[in-house]
């Protein structure tokens, strides 16, 4: 039984600050967004997603955006926030205001949808383009590297965990190459390298699928993918590794 159930009052706290959210509102068929501004009260721990929830539940219930886990694991809530590709659920608003102030800018948070995905409306996108080139049959589990060397219960072979990549698409949206030509893009290529690492038997088959101009040779090494990745996948590193694997297989 929860200790908090005994208190019949819903916890409400005073705001410690406010921020102006300037949000790109788009509808299908009209590509140029209309900008709308909302003043949102903040607590110290308020993240951009909390602010969007506040706007939708109290001011404007037509605002559309994707969200699910609220802790950086599902990958649905990627957006462009003050020009940076980021997850709205782990981007603290007070930190944004602080950065703005240091740069001499206004206490405003500008929010736009992720580019390169299919826009539904406002900040909501259909991420289907992200998944187009993922390797078929690639698993989502890997061996856990945490507390390495610890004893494992006899019921299981090893401790496992989900892949770091949460398929949020930030790397794809931030990649300068994706915007100018057909490219398999960082997320899918990183998944190829991960899969080869876990299943070396599939190396020849999978390397064949990325050994092309739209595959690993399409990368111009801008490194934006590794910079924006919220979970430390470093896709650029995987692309370089795939290139190395291909060169090595040619020499063999």
């Amino acid at each position: 039984m929860s200790n908090f159930l005994a208190d019949p009052r819903e916890p409400r706290e005073p705001a410690v600050a406010t921020a102006v959210f300037r949000i790109a509102r788009s509808r299908p068929g009209s590509p140029d967004p209309a900008w709308r501004e909302y003043e949102v009260p903040l607590k110290g721990h308020t993240v951009v997603l909390d602010a969007l929830e506040w706007i939708r539940s109290r001011v404007d219930n037509t605002l559309l955006y994707r969200h699910s886990c609220h802790h950086g694991s599902c990958g649905t809530c990627g957006m462009v926030i003050n020009g940076e590709h980021a997850l709205s659920c782990t981007t603290n608003v007070m930190d944004l205001l602080e950065k703005s102030r240091e740069a001499g800018g206004p206490p405003t948070v500008v929010v736009e949808p992720l580019p390169t995905m299919n826009l539904i409306a406002d900040l909501a996108v259909d991420p289907a383009p992200l998944f187009r080139d993922f390797p078929a049959g690639a698993g989502y589990l890997r061996e856990s590297e945490f507390n390495r060397g610890s004893e494992v219960p006899r019921e299981i072979e090893r401790f496992v965990r989900f892949e770091n990549c949460i398929e949020c698409g930030l790397c794809v949206a931030a990649c300068p190459v994706v915007r100018i030509r057909d490219f398999m893009a960082p997320a899918a290529l990183a998944a190829y390298n991960r899969e080869i690492g876990k299943n070396p038997d599939r190396a020849a088959e999978l390397l064949g699928e990325v050994d092309s101009d739209r595959g690993v040779w399409g990368c111009d090494r801008h490194l934006e993918c590794s910079r924006v990745c919220p979970t430390g996948v470093y896709p650029a590193k995987h692309i370089v590794e795939l290139q190395r694997r291909i060169k090595k297989s040619r020499e063999a």
Binding site: S2, F4, E13
Partner: peptide, 11 residues
Amino acid sequence: QWLAEDPDSIE
């Protein structure tokens, strides 16, 4: 666990 009025405006 606590009790709320509106599931859309939980803080």
